[in-house]
């Protein structure tokens, strides 16, 4: 316990960084994933096609590569940065770009399966009263699609929270990074350190599963 206690400030800072990464990426992935899902069911072939290409490329690329591309490719080579004078701020946003670009594809595919649970007739009825494609998505299809996939979306968010640890390859100091440093420096207590961090992640992710499960039951659409 000593190893953990002595480093409590670094550990808390690491987990706080993890929470900030996960929360912002979750928010942005939900937005981007919803847009992608709309593209993938759009009536215009070009839009559908671009959505499909994006999802299939990003979803099948290892996250490590995506994040390396963001930190080394975008930042070092292309010199596109959020703020060159603040490496921590910069690293945070570059990591979020990578996590969002990747996670949005899973949000998109999950939502698309939710869209499939909405009877086609409702989309036709929406068009028949004069709603445009985007209006019928926003007002009729997506609200029902979301409710149908709250539980699997929770799984996507849990995966995202754990995936934030991959940001270690980009050198941003979140929980896994702190753990790595501690393991390097410590002379003992390896198991404790591991268990402590593992528990930290369970504490973060367990409520996501619990809350989304409850929400799913509460918001279920009766057919």
């Amino acid at each position: 316990m000593e190893a953990l206690f002595d480093n409590r400030e670094a550990i808390l800072a690491g987990f706080w960084a993890t929470i900030r990464l996960a929360a912002m990426s979750a928010l942005l992935s939900l937005v981007l994933g919803t847009l992608l899902a709309a593209l993938r069911v759009a009536p215009v072939p070009v839009l559908r096609w671009s959505g499909t290409v994006y999802v299939n490329v990003l979803r099948n690329t290892p996250l490590t590569l995506v994040l390396l591309f963001c930190s080394l490719g975008i930042s070092n080579t292309l010199q596109l940065n959020f703020d060159v004078y603040d490496p921590s701020f910069n690293g945070y946003w570059l990591a979020i770009v990578g996590l969002t670009a990747y996670t949005a594809t899973f949000v998109c595919e999950t939502l698309r399966s939710g869209i499939n649970t909405v009877p086609l007739g409702q989309a036709e009825a929406a068009r028949a009263i004069g709603l445009t494609f985007f209006q019928s998505m926003r007002l009729v299809i997506l609200p029902q699609a979301f409710r149908a996939v709250i539980t699997p979306l929770g799984s996507v968010l849990i995966a995202l929270t754990k995936n934030t640890t991959v940001v270690i390859v980009a050198g941003y100091a979140e929980a896994a990074f702190v753990m790595k440093e501690m393991l390097y420096e410590s002379t003992g207590g390896t198991l404790e350190i591991f268990l402590g961090f593992a528990l930290g992640f369970v504490v973060l992710t367990l409520p996501i599963g619990f809350l989304t499960g409850r929400l799913a039951r509460r918001l279920e659409v009766k057919r």
């Binding site: 909405v118 409702q122 036709e124 009825a125 029902q144 659409v221 057919r223």
Partner: peptide, 12 residues
């Protein structure tokens, strides 16, 4: 206006 065989009311 269109009325369908299967009603197609918005369930939510």
């Amino acid at each position: 206006g269109m009325v369908f065989q299967s009603f197609n009311l918005f369930a939510h």
